[in-house]
Design a protein around this nucleic acid. Structure first.
Lengths: 344, 344
DNA sequence: GTGAAAGCGCTAACAC
DNA sequence: GTGTTAGCGCTTTCAC
């Protein structure tokens, strides 16, 4: 005789002729139950297909075994892989994932999503929203966060746990590679300059040029918006204002693809007349025409690392009652050389 | 004097000199509270930064305002967009999202993730895992599901709520386009044939050929694995076993990219010697060399639609107490013509 | 309009 | 080993 809704512990207890406490002991694998009783209860549990209510357990145990992820831009490869990494590591660590996406990361109201996650008592947060303009200002208002938070993809700040990619190093690697292959007139297509990551990659490019004694002028720089279309447009601009250009660093692979496409249209041989390096190493990059030299960042590792750091913080928090901060972690990107930068 | 942990309703009540009941009325916007009292309580709530515990509310209200999504393959564009669509519509409908990913969708144990979601009392489920081999067999065991489930990306079955893309129609559209442009020797690179979607796209290709009175032979068909690398390999095979080939349908854009890359390497002009059509319309497709003709599927819409259907089912379920099934929904893909199939 | 009592499903702390 | 009591944070009766 099932009532409405799922079976609860009381029904199991009644059916097995024991107290709810004993059922509780069985489902929690406590030692102090006689084998007989345990068996009997187990039987009933299976027969009724009883599933302990995690909501009730959370309420009492002060553990929800849930972490919240706030992300954005899933249409890009990097953020998606990062999310996949976060999910994988969370599952492996025994946490469920509450997901929220900001569809307008630059302006969307953060308070709502944050409040909601906290009211659901997530045990920690992964903040995987790119740092754009001042959209991270809310952090300053956050006197003392209610739960540990790990930030991805933003500038390391004291007092915050940040896991990021060494974007500047990436820009330097790309540019040094071009310099090493004899190029002296190296342009850059940046991402949107209100993104922290864009500015970092550009700084890396500048540092490499300066180190090599090469000039850095405004006409070598054009801003894109990460899209292939913007890469194509930016390249046209560069050709006008920097005609002696013989190599370029595109701040992501999509914009690089736009450049390759424009070069193909205009019959500009790559890499002979123009060498191109991208950033990201999306899976398709090896099948670009020609295959793209690029800076590989390990997006899935980023997600996994963030969860590992968060797990530590959660453990500390549960032990000490205080929300601590982790050491900043910086993942190193690496250069992947393909034909778009080196003949043959 | 804050105790450990977040503020609760009792502390607010004490501080405001009212009963917890009154606080409850205020946070639920009930009418029967005097303006005075309401104000006073509101003040305290703000001062203490009180946030009602959603876990406790779920326990009593029998509503968690949460839906579960089980997905996979986030490294591909389609599934990521679908997830983004699911998230957007859920947020708009006032639901939070519990996310689980299957990293081995063909074999991974489904029971675990399902149990976990149900024990957390999600109000409905979106099953966005591709149907591979027999990995959906568990559905048959599911006598009567505890909550409404909407399935994506699988074969419509009576008694199930399925939202899918008309893959077969897509295959037909692609092939008819090639036939209309005078091609008579049309090969296909399929996806993995234990995927339902692959077989459907292939069937669409066959139907178009048969309708046009063209032959369908085994040597025109090679199986890929969705990757660009497999597309490149498959193309080599096709050239051997089907040398008169003058056009081809690649079952996704990545494999088409592999073909374009191979053709470029071998100096085969596209579309003059070989016309190519893909499937998906990933954002990069317009920047392929040459730009790719393809079948656009609206992945984000798929996700949004699934949530809308699920919302209806949840409402019915709450009203009637019975888990109902929605009409199957089929989204139509469309042909996008670019230069890989038509000269100039 | 407001409060007291009871209970959502479960577990910790104590009895026996 | 097992049961009883109390309570997690909140809302739903039902008093007054």
């Amino acid at each position: 005789m099932r009532t409405l809704g799922p079976v609860n512990i009381k029904q199991v207890a009644a059916e097995a002729g024991v107290s709810t406490q004993t059922v509780s002991r069985v489902i929690n694998d406590r030692p102090d139950v006689s084998p007989d009783t345990r068996d009997r209860v187990q039987q009933v549990i299976e027969r009724l297909a009883y599933q302990p209510n995690a909501v009730a357990r959370s309420l009492i145990g002060r553990r929800t075994h849930t972490i919240g992820v706030v992300g954005s831009s899933l249409e890009y490869f990097g953020p998606s892989s990062t999310l996949a990494g976060v999910e994988k590591q969370s599952a492996d660590s025994g946490f469920s994932l509450l997901l929220a996406l900001l569809h307008e990361p630059a302006t969307e109201d953060i308070g709502q999503v944050l409040t909601d996650m906290l009211s659901r008592r997530v045990e920690g947060l992964i903040w995987a929203v790119p740092e754009i303009a001042h959209n991270h200002r809310w952090i300053d208002d956050l006197a003392r966060p209610a739960v540990p938070i790990v930030f991805l993809t933003m500038e390391p700040k004291p007092g915050l746990s940040v896991v990021s990619v060494a974007n500047r190093t990436g820009g330097t690697l790309a540019t040094e590679h071009l310099i090493a292959h004899g190029h002296r007139h190296i342009g850059i297509i940046t991402g949107p300059l209100d993104w922290w990551e864009s500015r970092e990659r550009q700084l890396g490019w500048e540092e490499a040029l300066v180190s090599a004694g090469l000039p850095v002028e405004a006409r070598q720089i054009v801003e894109g918006d990460w899209s292939a279309a913007s890469g194509e447009r930016a390249f046209a601009r560069l050709q006008e204002q920097f005609p002696e250009i013989d190599a370029m660093f595109a701040s992501n692979d999509q914009m690089a693809q736009g450049v390759l496409h424009a070069a193909w249209t205009a019959n500009i041989p790559i890499p002979q007349t123009l060498a191109v390096v991208g950033f990201d190493d999306i899976p398709e990059a090896s099948y670009f025409i020609p295959p793209l030299t690029t800076i590989r960042q390990h997006s899935a590792d980023l997600g996994r690392t963030a969860v590992l750091v968060l797990n530590d913080l959660i453990d500390q928090w549960r032990l000490t009652g205080r929300v601590a901060t982790g050491e900043p972690v910086r993942l190193q990107p690496e250069l992947v050389v393909r034909k778009s930068s080196v003949p043959q």
